[in-house]
Design a protein around this nucleic acid. Structure first.
Length: 644
RNA sequence: GCCGUUGUAGCUCAGUCGGUAGAGCAACUGAUUCGUAAUCAGUAGGUCAGAGGUUCGAUUCCCCUCAACGGCACCA
């Protein structure tokens, strides 16, 4: 006689045991239809589970986060069933839920093609129509082992072998398909339907590159067709922001096959933006008490032995080059160079903190398959800085860095962050005392700054704790940019020291920090964030002056000259085209403001103002417009809204 | 690096069952002198990613290399 408590606190009594699905039906037919699983005293269960005790039950529906997980997991099974029915002999391995979807890895003789995906999806739809009941079977380890051995499912056998003996093994059946799975799953295949297979890709068995490569099929699944469509729409939106496409369209940058992969060429328009970014970065750093450095691109190989990079970073470094019998190496990092400057003379405790920043271009041998537009390249410029300080200064220095990070990122329109504090890993250098002091200092600095953060226990580098910061872009994607890392290793390796108040020699604390991370990558993120519609202060061309016809060319040029004189980036479009053509052309180039000049404007000494969003902003005198634009640029405003 | 796909004009793409290629946009020239997202006409533009092989003949078929794309692995 189970007494079942529902999430709203109410109770329902049943004369005999009931299944979850039956329970849902007594609550409402709509609920029963949307139900995919349930939570019994906190544990996820299939709806077919019979409730014969007094328990608390929450029905999980398609639209809840947990329900979506169940749907995605069940859709992965459905796909595996379809694959095995179409391609006998293909082995199944694992098929987990991922963000927005699922994948399933198969061991197959040949790789799947795009046509195969269409066929698999078709078969899946048939199986949905058949509305096969999904049922769970508890089996012993031996039974499970034998069954999968007989089926020739070698990978499943390996999986079973690795499951702790204490765990219950369950099999899920639907039609003639069986899979080893913890569950829960939807009650029948008819509960599924809003899915789409996306792509095939290779993936190593158990994620290890020494293992055989399997065929992974990715798919997405949702609680309703509407949600699926919305998601696909969102993917298309993200696609439109692709910095590689926009970069080509707006002539911002290119990657040249003749030069090699992962090497970025900044074209004039991109270079203009970079210059603005860097100028702002420099002035913000000087204001923040930094000195700016320049260091070479290569150094004796020996330096990289001293730094330890030859031991633990060699794979990412370009091979050494020889000159007069001496091996030199391209730098993958700037830190050793800054250390050499530090060591160039004896430092006093009074000199600390030293804050040294450099836009330092480094080269790393990223593997060919890892290269991706501006996001992952082989040559890039780090906005690198190192703070050398005493242990008692850590907290204040980290606080300063966090302030600068927020100031700089905020100016680019990034004010939502995800922050991680990573603490001491198992293998590490440095005393307990220094780790303790430093980690505490990072924590306090974060809290003082009022920043929320998560702690990644043991996630720090072997040489010190760190703070990583991800920014969120306009469509909610997260990008790792800023990082603040303490280093107890390099100062030791290089024998850095300062003379303390008591005359003893002490080792300084070293802080590595970057705000953009890489200028290239940050630029890529900016392009995607703004969809190429840069705010006025960053736009490579801020204003386009568009004469209606040849008669107004002289006036247009005078307007351009006046605005250029104010430091604005202005172009005159003298092409022999109609005004509509010019407006379209500059709108597509994302030029923030267009000034139309014709007879009326020439007479009155004004311009007709229009922004790239199609807003007609009325008529303005050249002087008033210039002053208003200048103000917007100076304040680095993120909006084009007219305040003149 | 690994698996798969792809590489044709500046861009987006069509095409060639093996007989050295075509469109739209962009560029250039001319006409038009125009009021808020594409005026009309013409011209030019290609070692069909690169190297090799098969063939009378290769952009097309085969092999290798390079690069891009989607993943995996990598990314203190």
């Amino acid at each position: 006689m189970p007494d079942i408590q529902l999430p709203d606190g109410s109770h329902r009594q049943f004369p005999e045991p009931v299944s979850g699905l039956e329970l849902a039906r007594t609550i409402g037919s709509g609920l029963a239809k949307a139900a995919v699983a349930m939570r019994v005293d906190g544990a996820l269960k299939d709806l077919s589970t019979v409730l014969d005790q007094d328990v608390a039950v929450a029905i999980i529906t398609k639209d809840s986060p947990e329900g979506l997980e169940v749907i995605r997991h069940s859709t992965a099974h459905l796909m595996a069933q379809a694959v095995q029915s179409l391609f006998p002999g293909v082995q199944v391995t694992i098929g987990p839920v991922i963000e927005n979807g699922f994948y399933y890895d198969f061991a197959a003789e040949r790789s799947f093609t795009q046509d195969d995906l269409v066929a698999i999806e078709g078969r899946m739809r048939e199986l949905v129509k058949e509305n096969l009941v999904v049922h769970r079977e508890i089996v012993s380890r031996d039974t499970a082992m034998t069954r999968f051995e007989n089926m020739g499912e070698d990978y499943k056998v390996q999986i079973i072998r690795d499951i702790p003996a204490t765990e219950t093994l369950s099999l899920y059946h639907q039609g003639d398909f069986v899979d080893l799975c913890r569950g829960p799953h939807v009650p029948s295949t008819g509960s599924l339907g809003a899915f789409k297979l996306q792509r095939v890709a290779g993936a190593y068995w158990r994620g290890d590159s020494r293992n055989p490569m399997l065929q992974r099929i990715y798919g997405t699944a949702w609680g309703s067709q509407k949600d699926l469509d919305a998601y696909l729409q969102q993917l298309a939106e993200a696609e439109k922001r692709d910095h590689r496409r926009i970069g080509t369209e707006l002539e911002l940058f290119s990657i040249q096959e003749d030069a090699g992969g992962g090497l970025v060429f900044w074209h004039p328009m991109g270079a203009r933006i970079r210059r603005v970014i860097e100028d702002f970065w420099r002035s913000a750093h000087v204001e923040g008490g930094y000195e700016l450095l320049f260091t070479p691109h290569i150094a004796h190989e020996q330096l990289w032995h001293t730094s330890g990079h030859k031991d633990f970073y060699a794979e990412s470094m370009f091979d050494p080059m020889q000159d007069e019998g001496q091996p030199y190496q391209l730098k993958p990092m700037n830190c050793p160079f800054h250390i050499l400057i530090y060591k160039d003379k004896l430092r006093s405790y009074r000199d600390l903190p030293l804050r040294w920043a450099e836009l330092g271009t480094v080269y790393r041998h990223e593997m060919s398959g890892a290269l991706h537009g501006l996001m992952r390249v082989r040559g890039f410029t780090q906005d690198d800085a190192h703070v050398f300080c005493r242990p008692d200064q850590i907290e204040a220095e980290i606080g300063e860095v966090l302030t600068l990070v927020q100031k700089i990122l905020g100016t680019f329109g990034f004010d939502r962050y995800e922050i991680n504090l990573s603490t001491r890993p198992e293998h590490s250098v440095g005393s307990d005392a220094i780790w303790e002091t430093a980690t505490h200092a990072l924590r306090v600095a974060l809290e003082r700054a009022g920043l929320e953060y998560q702690v990644d226990e043991g996630g720090g580098a072997f040489y010190g704790p760190k703070i990583d910061l991800k920014i969120q872009d306009a469509i909610g994607r997260k990008w790792q940019c800023s990082t603040i890392q303490l280093d107890f290793n390099l100062p030791e390796r290089f024998g850095m020291e300062y003379v303390a108040e008591d005359g003893t020699r002490q080792v300084p604390i070293m802080v590595h920090r970057a705000i953009f991370g890489s200028v290239e990558r940050f630029f890529g993120v900016l392009i995607e964030h703004y969809e190429g519609k840069f705010p006025l202060w960053l736009a490579p061309v801020q204003v386009a002056v568009l004469p209606i016809s040849e008669h107004f060319v002289a006036y247009a040029e005078s307007v351009t000259a006046a605005l250029t004189k104010l430091g604005l980036r202005v172009e005159t479009d003298l092409r022999n085209e109609k005004i509509g053509y010019k407006i379209r052309a500059h709108t597509l180039r994302r030029v923030p403001y267009m000034l139309v000049v014709g007879e009326r404007e020439q007479e009155a000494g004004t311009v007709a103002l229009r922004d790239r969003n199609g807003q007609d902003l009325g008529s303005h005198s050249v002087a008033a417009l210039g002053a208003a634009l200048q103000k917007m640029v100076e304040e680095r405003q993120n909006t084009l809204e007219w305040q003149g």
